[in-house]
Every structure is written in C-alpha cells, then in structure tokens.
Design a protein around this nucleic acid. Structure first.
Length: 467
RNA sequence: GUCCCCAUCGUCUAGAGGCCUAGGACACCACCCUUUCAAGGUGGAGACACGGGUUCGAAACCCGUUGGGGAUACCA
C-alpha cells in the first residue's frame, strides 16, 4: 500500500512554526516512502476562516518548498458528502439525532465538571429515544454513538500505545443543527475519501484520535495510522499561539532567513539522526522516520536558527544571494550599476561568511553596491584625518598603479612590501586602506575587496579618500 | 476538577541495561589564526527532576512523587 499523508491547516491564522513542522514531517514521511503528500484546507468553520489566512498558509508552504501533490482541497466543498455520511450513520443506527438545548448542555457540563470524573459531558439522553419524542421547533444535531464501556487503545507511531477508558468518550456531535459537519466528522470522511494512510499531526489531537477511531469504525472504514508529534513551545514553555507572540513563517522570511535553514531547523526540533545537524532536503527524505521523533515538546530557539542560517548563507549560490541583496537594495531605493552587480557576485563569498541573515548581507554588500566617491562612517573618516594615513594612501596608490596584475595575492604582497620598507605594521596600512575603500572600519579582507573592486574603482576610491 | 502525554547541560538533542568518568550542536568563556569584523581551529564551564523498586549492574525497565504540557465546544 502506497503511503498518503496530508497537512490539514485551518485558515484561521497564518502558518506558524508548529504547523510548518507538521507539514514538513508529513512531506518528508510521504517522500521517504515514495508516497503522496496532500494539502487539505480545513475551512469548515466558515466564520473564522479567512481568505487572507489561506493565502498566508499557501505562501508559507511554497516558501518552504513543501510542494503538495495535486491541487489543494477545501473541506467546505465536501459538506454534502459529510452530511450524507452522517445521515447514513443515523440510518444504520450508529448515530442519532439529539434535540438538546444549549441550556441543557451547559447544565450537563456543569454536572460533569463537579462530579470529579466518571461522568460524561453529554449524558446520552437522546441516544435511545424515539424520533417521535422530538420536540417541535428545535433543529437537531447528529451525535455518534460511542462505546459505553471497555477501553480503546491507539498504537501511535510516535507516542506508542495509548489507552483510554471508553466511559470518558461521550457521544460527540458530527453534524451541527444547521446541517454542516463538525471537524471530527469532516476529518474522518475526508481522510478516508482521500486515501490517507498516515495522519501525522500535533499532539493536541491525540485525544481526538480516540473519537475519530470509533467514527472510522462506525463507517466501516479502515483506520489510518496515527502519529502525534509533540508541540513546539515558546521560550516560556507554553504552547505557541498568537497571543504568545508566535510568528508566522513569513515573519522569518522577512527576517532574512533562508527556507532551507528554516526547514533544517524545524526538522531538528523533535527529530534527530544521531549527531547530524546540517541536513539537506535530499538527506532528510532519505533518513526521515517516525521512530526518531521525540516524545517531549521542544522550545523554539532563535539563536540556533540564526546559526544554521549563517551556515546556509556561507554555502549558498552567489547568484541566488545576490538576487536577495538586490531586492533589498531596490527596496531601499539604491540604484545598482551593472559593474556593481558584477562586484557583488564576485565578492559574495567574503560577504556571506559574515552575515547571519540576508538583511545583514545587504548591509555588508553596501561597499560593492555603490560607485566612487563613497560615503564614509564617522569612524572611517576619523582614521583618514591623520596626515600620515593620507600620505600612506598616496604612496600606496602610486605602487598599486604599477601593479602588473590585480589578484588578491599580488595586492597583498605589494601592501606587505610597502609596510616593511616603511617599517609599519600591516594594520597601519590596511586600516586606512579599508576606510578609503569601504567607507567603514569593518569589512572583508581588504585585499579581497581590492581584487573584487578592480583596478579603476580601487584607484578612484583611493584618490578621493587621499584628498 | 477529570482524562491524556511528557521529563538528559540554559536551549535542541545522542543514549534500545554494562561501550557513560553521559556524546554532539547552539549560546557562553578562554586561547590560536589574523589587516578589521566574521568565519575557522583548540580547550573550558555546563545535565540524567526526586524517591522507591527490578538487576551482579540502571540515564535506560517498573511504581510513586513532583514539575511541565495538552485536551476537555453545535472551534479546528
């Protein structure tokens, strides 16, 4: 049997970290088994679902390259099918209509809470009543008949065997009084119709799994395998939620995080493969398994994400990175000449090893983006007020003009030789050079910068700074 | 309240009864490299929640305690 997984977000908010990880695990599991990964939008709560949230989720999935198979489906479009199943269940005697008023329900809940356990939230008062007793003027809901006694065990692929007494399971509502399905019914019907073999989802659904299992059985369907993965907590240890300042994945995108880094980080949160830390998508697909998913909740750690991001930045393709920098430049209203763009790509390795996110990369790139004369920071200007420093630059410029080739090694050699003849420390030469060439006191290796800038731009900047 | 789940450095984790004097990663500290800043290298500090069992031997297995989390809707 081929594996089919699905990610089933409800479009009531953005795609947050926990959801993204659930999607990733479902994706990886399906791909590992050569199966299918489906996306189903759970929009049965029409009041809370928004188009905006849905777009945010789709955008997040695309950004992380969690490509789903086929077109995404919308649960609300299967409402007719859900109602049919509910009615069939009633016809088969596995479900029944309940005419309770909200007041009656509230009363039952109150009793159950005060009883100290052993009492169900819904007492099943319409379970065996005849339809002829139905009061007029009340639209009934449909409830599923749950087993009255015994216990139910779920062989969860992550949590292991979990057993729950059946008397804690009440006859829950599957069809609302307005004829729309509840989540519980919709998931079961859709999972069955879509051929889902493995339901990998958050731990918060573990309790629901017991109810769903009986619903599957009442319908006479095979029950999918369940895998409940622990939730991701905020740094305070509580469930991630909007009020906790949990962010949507697009927020990380805006922070200049690379999607590969994000996925790698999410993968390591709750799943491990020995001591491996940096894991490519291909490697993840090959290695991913549910056995290695941890059972305890993990906390989100921005520092580690940033560290991973820095690593991906270092090995990322220069053109890809340049495109991100150019986008930032464009947003900042900086016009980049074709020469500057060439410099940017050439200088990328030296830049990338110094950045933790793409915005830092953009800031670091500034020295290549602009053309002479360049602006200077106060610190840089200060180091050039010294007459001796300016003299150094002038003398060095003369030597550089005579350079036969413009490679990093040659330039380095010229500067060192000059420093030696003048009996200066290399730093005394390099720092003014850095200020003049980059307009800053911090930059990649100054000889690398010179090589990337090229002869003309270098000499132009030197001349400007020396005067 | 009741039900369910969880418990190794600050954080993410390795650990399938002897390979554990508990390993790796992030963060932190020191040193090295060095033209600045990063990166990189080397080293350091830092954990088995507690109490009982089981066993020749428990971080690992069992029970309890404590702590944390989740669920308790005509939300998903």
């Amino acid at each position: 049997m081929s594996v089919v997984t699905r990610f089933a977000p409800s479009p009531t908010g953005f795609l947050h970290i926990g959801g993204a990880r659930t999607a990733l695990f479902n994706y990886l599991f399906a791909k590992h088994h050569g199966g299918q990964f489906l996306l189903r939008v759970e929009d049965t709560d029409r009041k809370r679902s928004t188009e905006e949230a849905m777009q945010a989720i789709l955008h997040g999935m695309n950004w992380l390259e969690l490509n789903w198979d086929g077109a995404e489906t919308y649960q609300s479009q299967n409402a007719d099918r859900h109602r049919e199943v509910a009615e069939q269940l009633v016809a088969d005697g596995n479900a029944y209509k309940c005419y309770c008023t909200p007041e009656e329900l509230a009363e039952m809940r109150e009793i159950a809470k005060n009883s100290g356990g052993g009492t169900r939230m819904y007492d099943g008062r319409w379970r065996d009543r005849d339809a002829s007793e139905a009061p007029a003027g009340i639209d009934p809901v449909i409830r599923i008949k749950m087993p009255l006694e015994g216990e139910t065990t779920i062989a969860d692929l992550v949590q292991g065997d979990v057993t729950k007494a059946n008397d804690t399971l009440d006859d829950f509502i599957i069809l609302r009084s307005d004829g729309t399905p509840t989540y519980m019914l919709a998931v079961v019907v859709d999972d069955h119709d879509m051929g889902v073999t493995h339901a990998i989802r958050g731990d918060d659904h573990l309790n629901n799994a017991f109810r769903q299992l009986h619903l599957f059985k009442a319908c006479g369907w095979d029950v999918p395998e369940f895998a409940h993965i622990p939730l991701i907590h905020g740094s305070d240890g509580a469930k991630l939620s909007k009020r906790h300042g949990a962010l949507g994945v697009e927020a990380y995108e805006e922070m200049g995080i690379l999607p590969e880094a994000m996925c790698n980080y999410l993968l390591r949160l709750g799943w491990s493969h020995g001591d491996d830390e940096t894991i490519s998508r291909e490697q993840a697909i090959e290695w991913f398994n549910l056995d290695a998913v941890g059972r305890s909740p993990a906390r989100f750690d921005m520092d580690k994400l940033l560290n991973l991001n820095a690593q991906y930045l270092k090995t990322a393709d220069a053109d890809t990175l340049a495109a991100r920098v150019l986008a930032d430049a464009n947003a900042a209203g900086i016009t980049v000449s074709p020469e500057a763009e060439t410099r940017l790509v050439a200088g990328m390795p030296g830049l990338a090893s110094r950045a933790k996110n793409t915005h830092e990369l953009f800031e670091l790139s500034h020295l290549y983006l602009v053309d002479a004369p360049i602006e200077m920071t106060e610190k840089a200007r200060d180091s050039l007020t010294d007459a001796e420093a300016r003299q150094t630059l002038k003398e060095l410029a003369e030597l550089l003009k005579k350079a036969t080739s413009w490679g990093e090694a040659e330039l380095d050699g010229i500067a060192r030789e000059y420093a030696e003849t003048r009996e200066l420390k290399l730093g005394k030469v390099a720092q003014p050079l850095r200020a003049a060439l980059t307009g800053s006191s911090v930059s990649p290796s100054i000889f690398e910068v010179m090589a990337v800038l090229g002869r003309d731009e270098t000499l132009a900047r030197l001349e400007f700074a020396a005067n």
